[in-house]
Nucleic acid binder design. Structure first.
Lengths: 231, 231
DNA sequence: CGCGGCTTTGATGTTCATCAAGTAAAGTGG
DNA sequence: CCACTTTACTTGATGAACATCAAAGCCGCG
């Protein structure tokens, strides 16, 4: 169960400019009315596919995964979302239920707005509607493009890709703690857990990376980059 | 070069209800002003990725493919669109240029609306904005879901899938003319041309289908269905 | 007529999933 | 706190699935 935490009025939110910069006071008041800010502990589920959509969510802090559940314990991770991402955007206009599940990979702070209120604002503010569409479109395009990129690559290229992804886009550091298990890596880049491990070991033997459990250090980012491109 | 053909006023369009049912006369007049209806011959390119987005397109007749071009002659087909599909929806809110290329697989009639006019209508009509979002969201979700489904399958399953797709969703018949080459099938379901041919031949030998060039007849749809599920 | 694109089949080798088996780490209940 | 169970991680061996290479026939088009 997430902990509800105190929060500012939307008007004073530091993230307002992300999407709500063009709204007037009335609109912000409407959004603020049923607003909640919640802290999800690592591992907690934020929403489950099939559930009724009640809230529009965005991530203020932490890291989450969007995924589809599969029967035989083989989930499919669609995407990793980071702070400032609108994590319920993909389900927003589905027929009433969430298309994907979301869970916290790290302790995460999520801001939750009432979906009906948001739709009300969209209806009355066309410029805002277009902003939402742009965000939605970009998020979808990124997912599709990433999928194709990953599928084109061989396994070594995929692992390189995902290491660069975490290093460059998530942590902005050469050394970091992997937020997901080997198995989740497999679910994200469509291969088996065994091969994730095998190839990480190869990279270690080749002195491209250093591994200590979940702690990864990129020793030779250039070579990793070239494996990503060519593999 | 497409041929411009005469067309009704939007108000009288038989496809109005698809998306424009809730618009008033002023809005329909605005959309109608720069409207064009065009006939593209089989093989003609309707739009190219990277081009400036000027028009909102929908397909009245025919069949088209949406695809991404790749350097070494290996395109990636994203999706096949059929009449009543809004084929420029995916690019609509990208930063000014088309994300995908579109070309005609069969002689196709495309209705082209001025994109700026359409955005104007969106801005002033929130309910319409939401309708567009729903359509957009569904189109993207379908693409993503289809991608995952295809990638999970073995090659035989993929071929079965695509045969069922054409038979059920496009032609509604057991016998039909494939609108795309073996190579395009490969580009659509991510395998090599040789294997497309090989597996079609296997299906022929197994008496699951009958092949005469591009003409396909499903002899045993049930078995095909089960190959699709299990393969 | 010849050239290029599409189709077809066979042979070959690579990539990868699967199976098996074992160690380490982490949660669970008495 | 320790025995117990489960889950995560790791490595090797094996075979299946698949891409690649090669060669040839076919057809339409300039």
């Amino acid at each position: 169960m997430p902990e509800i935490i105190n929060s500012n009025h939307c008007k004073a939110c530091i993230y307002k400019g992300l999407l709500f910069g063009g709204l007037n006071d009335d609109e912000l008041n409407l959004l603020n009315r049923n607003k909640k800010e919640m802290l999800f502990k690592k591992g907690e589920i934020i929403s489950t596919e099939g559930q009724d959509i009640a809230a529009f969510l965005y991530l203020k802090q932490g890291l989450v995964k969007l995924y589809k559940q599969s029967p035989n314990n083989k989930d499919q991770i669609i995407s990793i979302a980071k702070p400032r991402d609108f994590i319920s955007l993909l389900s927003m206009f589905s027929l009433s239920t969430y298309k994907y599940s979301i869970s916290a990979l790290e302790d995460s702070v999520v801001c939750s707005l009432d979906m009906e209120a948001l739709k009300e604002v969209i209806k009355n503010n066309g410029a805002f509607a277009i902003d939402i569409m742009k965000k939605m479109s970009k998020m979808y395009d990124d997912i599709i493009e990433k999928r194709f990129e990953i599928n084109k690559k061989h396994l070594r290229g995929r692992i390189a890709y995902i290491l660069i992804f975490f290093s460059t886009h998530i942590y902005q550091q050469d050394e970091f703690e992997l937020p997901i298990s080997r198995r989740e890596i497999a679910e994200l880049i469509e291969m088996t857990t065994e091969n994730v491990i095998r190839i990480l070991s190869e990279f270690r033997k080749d002195k491209i990376i250093h591994i200590d459990g979940k702690r990864i250090k990129l020793l030779d980012p250039d070579r990793l980059e070239s494996v990503c491109k060519l593999g």
